[in-house]
Amino acid sequence: MFKDKLKKIRKDNNLTQSQFGKVIGVTGAYIQQLEKGIKKNPSLEIVFKICNKFNIDPVDLIDSNSELLNEFINGLDENEKDEVTDSLFNNEFNKIANVLEDNGYEINRISSDGYDIVEILKDDCTISEMLEVDFVNNGIIMVDSINKFIRFSIEDFLETYNNLGKSKNK
C-alpha cells in the first residue's frame, strides 16, 4: 500500500515525518496522515516530488489498484500505458512469488498453447497450476493467508513454550 511504501522510504532515509515533509514541500502532519492512511491519495505532484527527490520509479510507489494509478495513466500514450501496466503486473507477480518462495514453495512460469501458466510446487510436487493472471489476482489473498498462518503458528508456539516454562517453574 502507498502508506507503507511512503513510510519505508522515509525510514530508509532516516528522516522524521517533519523532515520528510520539508524535503517535498508539505507538513509533517500531512506525511503522518498519509502514513496512517487517513489521507489515501496524494496528488500526482506530491508523488512525483517524492520520486524525484528519492530516485524512485512512480510505478513502484503507486499501488496497482489506486485512483492515483488511473490519474497517472490518463496522461500516457498507449505504449506507455502498456509499459506501466506490464511493470505493475510483474511487480505484483514478483512480490507474491517471493513470499511463497520464502515459505518453501517453488514458482515456475510456463507458456503453453498461448497461455501463461504458473506452477506452484512444494518438495518437488505440484501443488497448483493456474493462469498467471489468476495467480496475480488471487495472490494477495494467498499471501494474506500465509502471513496469518505464520503469525498464528509463531504465536501458538510462543504461547505453548511460555506455558511450559511456567509449569516447570512451579
Score class of each variant (00 low, 15 high):
residue 65 N to S: 14
residue 52 N to K: 15
residue 43 S to M: 03
residue 59 V to S: 08
residue 39 K to V: 15
residue 69 L to I: 02
residue 71 E to Y: 03
residue 29 A to Y: 08
residue 37 G to M: 08
residue 53 K to F: 05
residue 42 P to K: 03
residue 18 S to N: 14
residue 11 K to W: 00
residue 12 D to Y: 02
residue 43 S to E: 12
residue 17 Q to Y: 04
residue 72 F to M: 04
residue 20 F to Y: 13
residue 55 N to R: 14
residue 52 N to M: 10
residue 64 S to I: 11
residue 26 V to A: 03
residue 65 N to A: 07
residue 37 G to E: 05
residue 33 Q to W: 00
residue 63 D to S: 15
residue 31 I to W: 01
residue 46 I to W: 01
residue 19 Q to K: 14
residue 35 E to N: 06
residue 59 V to N: 06
residue 38 I to P: 00
residue 14 N to L: 14
residue 13 N to R: 14
residue 10 R to N: 05
residue 43 S to C: 10
residue 69 L to T: 05
residue 71 E to T: 14
residue 72 F to V: 02
residue 42 P to V: 09
residue 64 S to T: 12
residue 39 K to E: 12
residue 49 K to S: 11
residue 21 G to A: 11
residue 59 V to M: 02
residue 32 Q to N: 14
residue 57 D to R: 04
residue 53 K to R: 15
residue 35 E to W: 13
residue 26 V to N: 00
residue 61 L to Y: 10
residue 71 E to I: 14
residue 54 F to A: 09
residue 13 N to H: 15
residue 13 N to D: 11
residue 26 V to E: 01
residue 59 V to L: 00
residue 23 V to F: 03
residue 54 F to S: 07
residue 14 N to H: 13
residue 65 N to W: 00
residue 64 S to C: 04
residue 62 I to W: 06
residue 70 N to T: 10
residue 60 D to M: 08
residue 54 F to Q: 06
residue 58 P to E: 05
residue 21 G to N: 13
residue 49 K to R: 15
residue 65 N to L: 05
residue 72 F to S: 09
residue 69 L to R: 08
residue 28 G to Q: 08
residue 58 P to G: 06
residue 23 V to E: 11
